[in-house]
Computed example of a mutant assay.
Amino acid sequence: MNDENLSVFIDAVVNYFECTADDPVKVGTPYLDSESAPALFDYTGIIGISGARKGCVYFSAPRALLRHLLLSMGEDDMAQENLLDVVGEVANTLSGNARGHFGSEFMISVPVVVTGVPEGIHLPKALRSYVIPVYWKAYSAAVVISLEG
């Protein structure tokens, strides 16, 4: 994963929030996750990647960020289903934008969404995993990229 490839995901985060949110998003400096312990918040949308590159991309955010994101999109129903939908939508959109850059051999799965900090989720030790900190309003979230190549 080089700087150009990381910038694809950074640009995708910025573009997503520009199109759907009422306040701009700030993206922190990406860093290498050296512990193979994923950065997780209350809700996580995970996209499996196959094809020329294998691994995963996920977006994880606290409940309050997702609630405010739904409100900024004009949705006032804060049901669990909507929170799960929006975290999966963000992960899917980011991965879909990356697919536009990497090409048709960058195959993405449907999002898997989880709540809480699931036990037993570890990033592959053989892959270098990068965390992109995301700051919106008063909240922190993360995009994690763990890909071959």
Rank of each mutant, 00 (worst) to 15 (best):
N2H: 10
D3R: 12
E4K: 12
S7G: 03
D11I: 05
D11F: 04
N15V: 15
Y16L: 01
Y16I: 02
F17D: 04
C19H: 14
T20L: 08
K26Q: 08
V27D: 13
P30Q: 15
Y31M: 10
S34C: 15
A37W: 02
F41V: 02
D42R: 11
G45H: 11
G48H: 08
G51C: 07
G55V: 05
G55Y: 12
P62Q: 14
A64V: 08
L65E: 03
R67M: 12
L70A: 05
D77M: 12
N82R: 00
L83C: 08
L84G: 06
V87K: 00
N92T: 00
N92K: 03
T93E: 12
L94P: 07
S95G: 01
N97S: 10
G100V: 05
F106S: 03
M107I: 15
I108K: 08
I108N: 06
P111K: 00
V114M: 08
T115P: 08
T115M: 13
G116T: 04
V117K: 12
G120Y: 06
H122D: 09
L123N: 02
K125C: 11
K125A: 12
R128H: 07
R128T: 05
S129A: 10
V131Y: 02
P133W: 02
P133D: 07
Y135D: 13
V144T: 15
I145G: 01
E148T: 15
G149Y: 08
